[in-house]
Design a protein around this nucleic acid. Structure first.
Length: 456
RNA sequence: GUCCCCAUCGUCUAGCCAGGUCUAGGACACGGGCCUUUCGAGCCCUUGGCCGGGGUUCAAAUCCCCGUGGGGACGCCA
């Protein structure tokens, strides 16, 4: 038919795949899937100094982890130098481009005193496109008509003096040759689009459709950066976020599946996605909401699934708990955890004996010596044949009555002694999962600390 | 400086294109309450917004204009 939708994601490997890039990739991917088209991956590694192979690796890994499989590629621009040269020479022959050390027409918006930019005195000749002076117009799929006077930007560098193509040229040649029909990219590219349209026209290629996605901003209103929060997708992975949650949240930033609906899968999104419905306004990345969404996805998983997801986090800490035990811990923590890390950090006392004691918890509940009560409790627990949540609670409360205490007088110190935390699952369930031996051992250890006069 | 884009609760948004049903709905966060075995979990409740000004119209969050504010681009980076 020849009318197949073909979109691409074209990152440059000068850094990790960040949240913004991931969202651009995601919208392209969803668009391709929604239209039954192809999603193509191209690596724009024409910056010799800054491009690094390990970043390519990292970007590919992150895309796969997020579930964005590509149909063609990855193509590397660094391997296509000859192709760009050919087209540049064609323009040269046609008199549409010239060789020079500088652009003849630098455009109305050129900043003569542009600070910070290093001027390379030794550069040789570049191939530069002589931009025709005209009003360039296009219809943005999200924003509608946009129009810019080409005199604003002036001539366009095609081939840099190092022989490698400049961004706008490589991009156009590749998009044309790869048959890209729709270009979805960040709003920061709006100013490149008129330049590229001029190049499509000069080269005699059909001009694709453009859609400029709103940018993602940090809490401070500026562009999302390391300062305003973690940005690398791999960072979120390490922090225990689930790809489903990230992808769901990213879709939500600038698009809505419908009123009063926020949790949805990519499959559902694909069914109703239309690029026209994407918002025009840039969105602030809300870490808290992502965290909330992640907790929703954690709750929806089975404990078995969570265990396999947790495996790397446990291994990393040298932990290899018994499977059944681990599943019980996960059951207990599932409703409280927001990230996978929470299972291992908030719940460290389930996995290791050298669990951390929170200062506040110790101050609040372990300052007063309760050796007598603890000793009595140990005895009660020793005699307990049936170690179940019900009998633990029953005997615990009996003892509390006998000692003339209120439940909370003993519950809190015990919680802190066995977990080191002042917050956690219900105490009796906690003790049950921890197991009789462990509980008794930890209570005894606390008695020891009191005897030695230590705090914890 | 030049050009481009955008504008609904603190944040993400629904509503806008096809004006009335919007004294503007939801979610996150915040505040409060309940649970009393904690809260980082659960349940419940509250606060909070159409940037301003003109116009068009019987009627404007919705359409038009101006202003203001925010963002982006201006590189032989991508």
């Amino acid at each position: 038919m020849g009318s197949e939708v073909r979109v691409r994601f074209a990152p440059s490997p000068t850094g990790y795949l960040h949240i913004g890039g991931a969202r651009t990739a995601l919208f392209n991917w969803v668009y391709a899937r929604a239209r039954g088209g192809k999603f193509i991956l191209r690596i724009e590694d024409t910056d010799r100094e800054r491009s690094r192979p390990e970043f390519v690796e990292e970007i590919l890994d992150s895309l796969k982890w997020l579930g964005m499989n590509w149909d063609e590629g990855p193509f590397f621009q660094s391997q296509r130098e000859e192709i760009y040269k050919e087209f540049a020479e064609k323009l040269l022959r046609e008199g549409k481009a010239y060789r020079a050390r500088e652009r003849r027409n630098k455009g109305l918006s050129y900043k003569p005193q542009g600070e910070g930019r290093e001027v390379d005195e030794d550069k040789g000749e570049a191939i530069i496109f002589a931009a025709p002076e005209k009003e360039v117009s296009f219809v943005d799929l999200i924003r509608g008509p946009i129009s810019v006077d080409s005199r604003q930007f002036g001539d366009i560098v095609l081939i840099k003096s190092d022989g490698l193509p400049a961004y706008n040229f490589a991009c156009v040649v590749d998009d044309a040759l790869m048959g890209i029909t729709h270009i979805l990219r960040g709003e920061d590219h709006i100013s490149n689009t008129p330049k590229q349209i001029l190049l499509y026209e000069a080269l005699g290629f059909p001009v694709p459709e453009f859609a400029h996605l709103p940018l993602i901003m940090g809490k401070d209103g500026g562009r999302l950066s390391k300062r305003t929060g973690a940005t690398a997708v791999s960072e979120y992975r390490k922090m225990g976020y689930l790809p489903e949650a990230i992808v769901n949240y990213l879709m939500l930033l600038g698009w809505s599946i419908g009123p009063d609906r926020e949790i949805f899968s990519l499959e559902e999104a694909i069914k109703v996605f239309d690029v026209k419905d994407v918002n025009k306004t840039s969105a602030v990345f809300d870490f808290d909401k992502l965290r909330w969404m992640n907790s929703e996805y954690i709750k929806a998983k089975s404990s078995e699934e969570l265990l396999s997801l947790l495996e790397p986090f446990l291994q990393e800490r040298g932990l290899s708990p018994d499977r059944d035990y681990a599943l019980r811990v996960i059951d207990l923590f599932k409703t409280r955890a927001s990230t996978l890390i929470d299972f291992v950090e908030w719940g460290d006392y389930f996995w290791r004996e050298d669990y951390t004691f929170e200062d506040k918890a110790v101050e609040m509940h372990l300052v007063k010596d309760m050796s007598g009560e603890f000793t009595a409790l140990i005895e009660v627990f020793r005699d307990l044949e049936d170690w179940s949540v019900e009998s633990i609670e029953r005997d615990f409360r009996e003892l509390v009555d006998r000692l003339g205490l209120k439940p909370r007088d003993l519950i809190h110190p015990v919680r802190v002694a066995v977990s080191g935390k002042k917050v956690g699952p219900g105490l009796f369930e906690l003790l049950y999962v921890l197991g009789k031996e462990t509980v008794i051992r930890r209570l005894q250890r606390q008695i020891e600390r009191w005897r030695k006069g230590e705090d914890a």
